[in-house]
Design a protein around this nucleic acid. Sequence first.
DNA 1: TATTGACTGATAATGATTATCATTATATCT
DNA 2: AGATATAATGATAATCATTATCAGTCAATA
Lengths: 141, 141
Amino acid sequence: MSVDSDDCLHKSRQMPRLTRQQRTVLEVLQQLAQPISAQSLYKTLRQDHRSIGLATVYRSLEVLKLQGLVQSRINRQGESLYSLVQQDQHYLTCLKCGQSTPLDSCPVKHLERQLQQSASFTIYYHSLEFFGLCQPCALLD
Amino acid sequence: MSVDSDDCLHKSRQMPRLTRQQRTVLEVLQQLAQPISAQSLYKTLRQDHRSIGLATVYRSLEVLKLQGLVQSRINRQGESLYSLVQQDQHYLTCLKCGQSTPLDSCPVKHLERQLQQSASFTIYYHSLEFFGLCQPCALLD
DNA sequence: TATTGACTGATAATGATTATCATTATATCT
DNA sequence: AGATATAATGATAATCATTATCAGTCAATA
């Protein structure tokens, strides 16, 4: 999860931790603290007059994901929503209306520690999602 | 989870539980017991000379999902992979190479029962996924 | 300052999914 | 059984997020 220089044993050339564009994208996500699509992020930056090319937005998000700083989640429309990796995410998602309700409880930390110790995998974050029907949708049928 | 007639209090017209096409799609998934994309399913059926229109494949999968019989999962290429709802799914997914390793342990059943009893949501299945770097990818960097 | 490799931006290409619409199938009613 | 109404289907066009491409830019080292 940390991105200390210790973790970054680059081969030859030393590049800045994150480029300007990558930092801009990260800042937007930090201010938002709300999942946002790449397209929306792109438009937001245009309106702010700090335009970044759309392709670069996508590339930056990919880099930030690889750093474990950002996570994504695909919504009902099939677009990826990006957000900071701050807390793990737990949802109750209705198969009919698509609404996702966040949950509080996280019963998974323990397992995560176990897996972490198995040492063959470095866990950045996890996601737990329950699928079914919310009451209104269940009653419709 | 059950699709007994008791559950299906239809308004006026009584339709068959599932149409021929929907049953065909379900059969393929039952035989496969392997997640498959809608496109692949479509091609598979063409080769078997039991062609179904591509749009109908998508529609059937949607119906089966709403019945709680089928679940989907989006892979790295952004395509949905469909499979039977048989067991809950738990993955260890590498952010770099995209490889997903299934897990055995399920620490979530208890929480699921709790949520089930809160009665405002009917849970069909759940999904638990850990994201990070597998050892080979972690070493690359 | 020249070199070199990665990053960027504009835009075209890709490809899965969805919308449309004429046609077909099927349940219900007579 | 036949008529009717409604939902399902199939072919295809349209949509739209994401990726690929490529020429131009930037920045770190020598």
